[in-house]
Design a protein around this nucleic acid. Sequence first.
DNA 1: TATTAATATACCATTGACAGTATATACTAA
DNA 2: TTAGTATATACTGTCAATGGTATATTAATA
Lengths: 127, 127
Amino acid sequence: MEASEIFKCIADTQRLRILNLLEAGPLCVCHLQELLDVSQVKMSKQLSIIKQMGLVESHREGTWMIYSIQEPINGLIQNSLHYLREADCSECNQLQRDLLNRGKLILRITDTAEECPDTVCQQIGCY
Amino acid sequence: MEASEIFKCIADTQRLRILNLLEAGPLCVCHLQELLDVSQVKMSKQLSIIKQMGLVESHREGTWMIYSIQEPINGLIQNSLHYLREADCSECNQLQRDLLNRGKLILRITDTAEECPDTVCQQIGCY
DNA sequence: TATTAATATACCATTGACAGTATATACTAA
DNA sequence: TTAGTATATACTGTCAATGGTATATTAATA
C-alpha cells in the first residue's frame, strides 16, 4: 500500500473521521451515518472505498453491517490519527468531538438491546 | 491549515518528494527538477501549489529561484515525513533514495561554484 | 542591445473525484 | 408472502486536478 494512496484516502474529511471512529471500535453503517450526519448513500460509498483499500472489514449482523478496522491497522493511518488527535485544527477538534459523541451513542444504544449490534456490545462488555 | 489540505498536498508523490528534499535544505528549481526527473513546467507548477499553501518560501539568486521550507515547518508534514522515512513502501524507499541523491548532487555542485547557489552552499558550509 | 538561461504563467484537453436520484439486495418479522 | 429496515450499486451530471504546448518574465552576459 503506497503512502500516496493512504494520504488520498484520509485527505477526505469524512473518510478520516470514519477511520478515527472505527479505530476506537466497530460500528454499524447507520450509527456512523448518525455520528457524521451524512446521507446513507454517501456513507455507503465512503465505506466501500475504504474497504476496497483493505483498511476496514465488514460483516453482517441481521440487517446491520458492522464495520471495523482491518487488523493490523495501517501504520501510516495510525500514526496520522494519533498525531491529529493531539493537534489543533478544526478537523482535529472534530476528531476529538467525534470520539466523545461515539461514547454518548454507545451509552444510548447499549441501553436498549434492539438498537445495539452484538459486536458493538461485546467490544464494550455490556453483556 | 486543515489536515485534509495537507494530506491532499502530500497525496501527490512529487509534492511529497519535494517537501522531503526541502526539509533537508534549500534547493533551486533546476536541481529539484534533476532530482525528480520531471519537466520544468510541472516542477514549477508543483512548487507554485506548495508555495501558495505557505509550506515553502522562495527567493531569487540571479537566475535561480531557491525554494526552502517555510519555518516553522508544518507539524503534520514533519510528522508524516519522519514516519515515512523509517517505513517500508516503494514511495518510502524513494524518499530515502532522494536524500542520498541530494547528497551526491550537493557534492557535485559545491565543486564548481557556478553551479551552486549561495544559499545552498551556506547551508552546507562550503565557503 | 541581442541572446541565452532559469523560471513562471496562460491556455486547452483529458481524466478522475464527488454528489444526487433512483433502484436493487439482504434480511427480519408479521 | 408481504412489508419494512438497513445497506449497496448503477447511472448521470458537475467540478477539480493533471499534463502538455506555447509563451511570457527576469536576470546575466556577450
